[in-house]
Simulated scan of single mutants.
Amino acid sequence: MNGTLFQSLTEARDRIEAWKTDHSRHRPYSSLGHLTPLEFALKSRLDAKAA
Rank of each mutant, 00 (worst) to 15 (best):
M1G: 01
M1P: 00
M1W: 00
M1D: 00
N2T: 01
N2P: 00
T4H: 00
T4E: 00
T4S: 00
L5S: 01
L5M: 03
L5C: 02
L5F: 01
F6N: 01
S8M: 01
S8F: 02
S8G: 01
L9N: 01
L9W: 02
T10D: 03
T10S: 01
E11L: 02
E11W: 01
E11D: 04
E11G: 02
E11R: 01
E11V: 02
A12I: 04
A12Q: 04
R13C: 06
R13D: 06
R13I: 05
D14W: 03
D14V: 07
D14Q: 06
R15N: 11
R15F: 10
R15I: 15
R15Q: 14
R15E: 15
I16P: 03
I16Y: 05
I16D: 06
E17I: 10
E17C: 08
E17Q: 10
E17N: 10
A18N: 12
A18T: 13
A18S: 13
W19H: 12
W19L: 15
W19Y: 15
W19C: 13
K20I: 15
K20G: 04
K20Q: 12
T21S: 10
T21H: 09
T21D: 04
T21R: 11
D22P: 08
D22N: 12
H23M: 13
H23W: 13
H23L: 13
H23P: 07
S24I: 14
S24Q: 10
R25T: 15
R25E: 15
R25D: 12
H26L: 14
H26Q: 12
H26M: 12
H26F: 11
R27E: 13
R27I: 15
R27M: 12
R27N: 13
R27S: 07
R27Q: 14
P28C: 06
P28T: 08
P28A: 14
Y29F: 13
Y29V: 13
Y29T: 12
S30H: 09
S31K: 08
S31R: 07
S31G: 14
L32D: 08
L32K: 05
L32S: 07
L32R: 03
L32T: 03
G33Q: 10
G33S: 07
H34F: 12
H34G: 04
H34E: 12
L35M: 15
L35P: 03
T36A: 05
T36K: 03
P37I: 02
L38K: 07
L38W: 09
L38G: 03
L38Y: 09
E39D: 08
F40V: 03
F40P: 01
F40E: 02
F40K: 02
A41N: 10
A41S: 12
A41G: 05
A41V: 14
L42M: 08
L42Q: 09
K43L: 15
K43E: 15
S44G: 09
S44V: 10
S44Q: 11
S44M: 10
R45A: 12
R45S: 11
L46D: 10
L46G: 08
L46I: 11
L46Y: 07
D47G: 06
D47N: 08
D47Q: 09
D47A: 10
D47C: 09
A48K: 07
A48W: 07
A48F: 08
A48I: 10
K49I: 12
K49P: 05
K49D: 10
A50Y: 06
A50C: 06
A51N: 04
A51H: 04
